[in-house]
Computed example of a mutant assay.
Amino acid sequence: MKKTLLALLLLGVTATAASAQVEIGLKVSPSIAYLRADGSSNNFQKDKSKLGLGGGLVVDYFFGENYAFSSGLELAGKGGTISYNDPGTGTAQTTKITAQYLQIPLTMKLFTNDIATDTKLYFQLGGVVGANIGTRINGEKEYTDPGNNNEVFKANKFLLVPDFGVMIGFGSEYQVGQSTKVFAGLHYQRGLPNIDNYYGDERGLKNVVLKNSEFALDLGLKF
C-alpha cells in the first residue's frame, strides 16, 4: 500500500513538473516614489515625490496555460521628500530621503486568452519583500540635524533595513518568437511597516510613521 501511494505521489510530481513552464527575462522599471508620512503632533506629511529607476530579473513559473507564480530579483529606487514642524528649531523642515532596495516579488500573474494575434493581457497581485541597501539624506551619506544640536548621523541608519508590502499591477505581453516575449505594464507597491529608524529613536518624536509607496512602469523581455 505504501509503495502504491509513493508511486502515485511521484507520478503526480512528475506530471506537475512536466506540465510546468519557466520563463525568465529582464525588465527596466522607471518609477515615481513617495513616502506616506504621518505624525500628528509634529505635522509630518508627504511633501514631494521622486523619480527613480529600477529593474532586474523576472521569473514566471507557469502551473497552467493562463496562470503563473511570478518572482525574481530586482533593484528599486524609493523614498521622497517629507515636511514636518521641528520642535528643536521651532521651524518647518523638509527632508529628502533617497533609498535603494533589493527586493523579491512574490506574486501571481493571471493571463487572458489572446485578445489579438500573439497578444495577452495579464493581471498581477501579491507581495514583495525587500532590504534597504543604501540611503542618502538630502543627497548626502551623512545627515546634520539642525533640530538636534547639529549632530551628524549616518544616512544608512535613517531607515529600517527590512521592508515588505503588497503589489498590484496589469499589463500586456506579446510573443515575437518561438520562446521570446516582450511585455509592458504598470504596477503599484504599497509598503506596510513603519520604516522610520530616526525620528522616533534618535529624536524621541511621538507617533512618526514613514511608509514606502511606488508607481512603476515595467518594460521587459522574456526568453
Rank of each mutant, 00 (worst) to 15 (best):
L26V: 10
K157G: 12
A15P: 01
Y188C: 07
V176C: 03
D163K: 00
A131S: 10
E151T: 14
V59G: 11
T89C: 08
P30W: 05
L205I: 04
L205D: 02
L106W: 07
Q175C: 05
F170K: 09
N207R: 08
L219I: 08
L75R: 08
D145W: 01
G191T: 04
E142R: 12
F158A: 03
S41I: 13
G127H: 01
L186P: 01
I133E: 02
F111E: 12
G80M: 01
D38M: 10
K222V: 03
S172K: 10
T14F: 05
K2T: 13
G39N: 04
I168M: 09
V28L: 12
T16P: 08
K3W: 15
E140A: 11
K211Q: 11
V58K: 12
D118N: 13
P146A: 02
G126L: 01
K120Y: 07
K27Q: 12
V161Q: 13
S172I: 09
F63Y: 09
K2I: 15
N197E: 05
V128D: 13
T107K: 00
L75N: 10
E151S: 12
Y101C: 01
A99W: 00
L51Q: 13
K222R: 07
L106H: 07
R136D: 15
L5D: 12
A155Y: 00
S179A: 14
I24R: 07
D196G: 00
V182H: 03
E202P: 02
G80I: 02
F183A: 09
T135M: 03
L26Y: 06
E142T: 15
K206Q: 15
Y188E: 08
K120I: 11
N66P: 06
L11S: 12
Y199I: 00
N138A: 09
I115E: 06
F63M: 07
K120Q: 14
T135P: 04
L53H: 08
T112G: 06
G55F: 02
A33R: 02
T144A: 11
S71P: 01
D201K: 15
E23H: 14
G191N: 01
F158D: 05
E74Q: 14
L57M: 10
L125W: 09
K181I: 09
V152G: 08
Y61S: 14
G25L: 03
N43S: 15
L6Y: 11
V28A: 14
G169P: 01
E74H: 11
L6N: 13
L106E: 07
A68K: 01
K78L: 07
A131W: 08
N149E: 14
